[in-house]
Design a protein around this nucleic acid. Structure first.
Lengths: 136, 136, 136, 136
DNA sequence: GTGGTCTAGACCACA
DNA sequence: GTGGTCTAGACCACT
C-alpha cells in the first residue's frame, strides 16, 4: 500500500490517508476483496498511531468502501458503492482548479504550470525506481 | 481582494486565507502600502467569523507581511520580507508534487493532467470576464 | 439529557449512549434543532472520557441524526432521516423478544414477567420523583 | 441446546452464550450430570469459531457450573454453586429494568409494554411448535 | 467557550 | 495474530 503523508499540508492525516485509499480503490490499484494492511502494520509503516488508522478504516467502512472482519482483517468491500467512485475521479478536477487558481495569481501561465507538472512526473518516476523491491 | 474558501478541502480556513494573501503579496497583486479590506468587511465577504480574519491578519503581521495601524486599518508592509517571493513559488512546486502523486495513482499521465490544467485556465479566464470589475 | 449507562450490561458504552439519544430523537423527547449538551458537559455528567462522547456524536452525525457546528455546539438535525425513526421504534420489539426468550427458559410465564414490568415502572417513577428539580 | 445469538445486540457473543447456558442450568432445562454438546458441535451449530465456545466452557468451568472431563466431554456440574439460581433471577430483574427505562423514554406505559410481552410469548410458543423435537 | 485531531497505552473480543 | 473500546491528555480550529 503506497500512501504518503504530508504533515505540512494542513490537511488532517486521517483525511489524507482516507483519500489515498479511496483513490486507490477508484483506480483499481486495490480491487474488491483485497486485504488491506492490518491496523498495526499500516500504523507502523506510516509512523502514526494505531487509533489514527483505526478511525480511517472505520470511516471508510461506514462509507461502504471497506469491510472489517473481526479477528481477521480489513478488506475492500465486494461491491464498491457506485457513483462514489465517479465522485472520486471528479475530485481531481477540483484539485486542479484549486491549483490553477493560486498559480494564476502568481502570474504564471498554463505553459509554465505544465512544465512543472512534467518535471514532477519525471521526478516521481525516478524516485520510485530507486525504491523498487527493497522496501517490500 | 480575490479570496476563495473551500470548506471541503480539509485545510483550515484560516490557513487558506493566509496563504492566498501571501500569494497575492508575492505576486504583486497587492503592493506594499496597499490597504487591505477591514476585518469586518473581509469576514462578511467570506462569510466567516471576524475572529477568524483577525487571527489571520495577526499572524501575517508577525510574519512581517502586513502592518496594522491602530485606528486606521491593515496595510501591506512597505518592505516585504526577503525570500517571501521565492518561498511562495516553492510552495507551488510542493502543491504540484502533491497533485501529481495523487493523479498518478489514478493511472493518469502527465499529458492528461496538462490537458486538465489548460482547461482549468481557460475556464478561469472565462469566469473572470463575466464578473468584470470586482465589487471592491 | 437523561442518559443512564449500565457498565455491567456488556454493551459498549458508546453504543448505549448512542441508542438512548436515538430513542429520545424518535420519541420526540428532543426535537429537531434542539441543542445537545456539549461534549465536555455530557462527558462529565456521565463520567466518561470526552472522546467517548465525541465518537458518539460523530457516528450519529454520519447517520444524519445530529449536526455538529464547529465552535458552536451539537444540534439535532433539522430533518431527521425518515424510516430510521421507525426502525428505532421497532427495536423495542426486538428487545422484548430477547427478554421473553430468556425469561421463558427460566420457567417464568407472561404474567410473572408483566408483574415485574409493572414493578419496574413504579420504581422508576418513584426514583424520578426523588431527583426532581435538584439535578438541573 | 437452544441457544440463539444476536450479533446485532452489541453484547459479546461469548457472553451471550455463557448467559444462556447459565440460565438453562438455573432453570433446570439442563440438569446436573447432563452432557453438553461438544465444542465442535456447538461451534458449528452457532456458526462461530471453536475457540469462542472453548472459552465459554472454560469460563463456566471456573465458575463451577460445568465440569470438563478430559477425553470425554463437558458436563453440568453435579453440585451447582449455591446462589446461582437466585443470581439468575436477579439478572432478569436487571434486564427488565433496562427495558422499562428505555421504553419509557419512548412514551410507552406499563400496559403497552405488557401487551408486547404477551404477544412475544405467544409468538415464541407458536414458533416452537413448528420446530417440534430439536435436532439434538 | 465550542468541536476536532492526534498520541500513548491498557485491556477486551474474535479467528 | 486480527479488529475494537476506552482513557488521559496535549494541542488545534472556530464562535
Amino acid at each position: 500500500m503506497f500512501i504518503r503523508i504530508d504533515p505540512s499540508s494542513g490537511m488532517p492525516i486521517t483525511r489524507q490517508i482516507a483519500e489515498q485509499i479511496r483513490t486507490q480503490c477508484a483506480s483499481g490499484a486495490v480491487a474488491p476483496g483485497d486485504r488491506l494492511p492490518s491496523v498495526r502494520q499500516l500504523a507502523q509503516e506510516l509512523a502514526v498511531n494505531q487509533n489514527t488508522i483505526l478511525r480511517v478504516y472505520e470511516r471508510l467502512t461506514v462509507e461502504g468502501l471497506l469491510e472489517r472482519r473481526h479477528g481477521d482483517g480489513t478488506y475492500v468491500a465486494d461491491h464498491l458503492p457506485v457513483g462514489q467512485m465517479k465522485a472520486q475521479r471528479l475530485l481531481v478536477r477540483t484539485e486542479v482548479d484549486r491549483l490553477v487558481q493560486r498559480v494564476q495569481t502568481l502570474g504564471l501561465g498554463a505553459d509554465e504550470l505544465c512544465k512543472l507538472v512534467k518535471q514532477a512526473f519525471e521526478e516521481l518516476a525516478a524516485g520510485q525506481k530507486q525504491k523498487g523491491a527493497p522496501h517490500e
